[in-house]
Design a binder for these strands. Structure first.
Lengths: 211, 211
DNA sequence: TGTTGAATCGACACAGTGTCGAATAATTTC
DNA sequence: GAAATTATTCGACACTGTGTCGATTCAACA
């Protein structure tokens, strides 16, 4: 049960159970656009997928497990994004940071409901907490490493605060802003404003740049 | 029903109902140290207060209403704290900002469970959302005003970003860090580290200071 | 002391959860 | 391709919790 995902457009035969699981996941993702996870009843998930309520428990252990599976659809994008953090060639820091932040914002725009539910479930579900702390650590580690490199090169403002401590604050700040941004109606202008503001805070905090 | 609080140590006669309401609130505050609001069942609240479950609904409309009442116990402290933001005499910005941030941190240390529950319920309950957005606006307004003053005086880095936009990000950042800090075991060292880091980010973002 | 409103209670109807064993569909094995 | 095995589905059940009602008790006071 619960195989790793087959290549997206594959014509490998999919067992009936896989189809049902997918239908449940699709329904969940759709419902999360409207309600929070604990407002969604199991029979809303299953009637959306055309099966009876008790069948749900054959496919998933709990509502949180659905969310966990849903999160994995997004996780690669998140990881790709984290990787962008490290890489900085000869371009100025501002471009590199803005690009990374803009990437995160658009990722939240695309998957807001799932990401918000995951953040909320962090406090509730052990499974989701573990998942999310892995994601966060990856971002924080990348950032801290990068800060240290820039400090060693004499480009960034030296500590204190610790590179890691600074990285933690900045990454959390991004998450919080993306969360609340994804709650508001999509607006390119507003998105740009948030990206600009976050970029400015990052630049000034790390490099001490004052233009 | 639901009178404004009587002066704390008052010997005005308190009706029996008031005592029961208080008992419910006390129980709720105690339980919130362990569980989240929606993990707390109504009969845990009432058995803690020595009354039957249905009596609860005579005193409060819902669990959220209890949280709202609980929040009001904390709100003055929160508002006092916001007031500190504006006032800055001849002392250097660093002292003023550090003092304000340290105040917020210790407030979250004192009332962490209630404040965390309120933040979480923001997404769920209209009542709590309104309450909290009022608190947030107060902080943001104070901060934005102060930033503008400092910019006009030529001390702070000019925009963009807008004073208000910058203030929003910085205040949210503080809230997020206080939330997660209040989840960890109390540690003076850790508290100081967080205060230092937040202070550094505020200073660099607003004043561009790089020491 | 009798009237009134505040406070409490138990009983009820309702929503949703998670588990079980039996029934059915799909796949494998011989 | 029939039998055996495994995957999937279902309805029924026992539970836990919610919110509402009308009946009852309590306390104040005219």
């Amino acid at each position: 049960m619960m195989f790793a995902m087959s290549p997206t457009g594959s014509r490998r035969k999919r067992s009936k159970g896989d189809l049902t699981s997918q239908a449940i996941l699709d329904t969940a993702e759709r419902l999360l656009e409207t309600k929070s996870l604990d407002e969604i009843a199991v029979d809303e998930l299953t009637s959306g997928a055309g099966i009876s309520r008790s069948t749900f428990y054959f496919h998933f252990e709990s509502r949180e497990a659905v969310l966990y599976a849903l999160s994995e659809r997004v996780v690669e994008g998140l990881y790709d994004n984290a990787a962008l953090w490290l890489r900085r060639g000869s371009e100025p820091p501002e471009d590199s940071i803005r690009r990374a932040i803009a990437g995160t914002v658009s990722l939240w725009r695309a998957h807001g409901p799932v990401l918000r539910a995951a953040v909320r479930a962090r406090d509730t579900s052990e499974l989701v907490r573990g998942f999310w702390s892995g994601v966060a650590r990856r971002f924080i580690d990348s950032t801290a490493t990068q800060i240290e490199i820039e400090r060693d090169a004499g480009v960034a403002v030296p500590g204190p605060p610790t590179a890691r401590s600074l990285a933690t604050v900045l990454v959390s700040m991004n998450e919080t802003m993306c969360y609340s941004l994804s709650l508001s109606r999509k607006s390119a202008a507003r998105d740009r404003e948030v990206v600009d503001t976050l970029t400015a805070v990052w630049l000034r905090s790390v490099y001490g740049v004052s233009r």
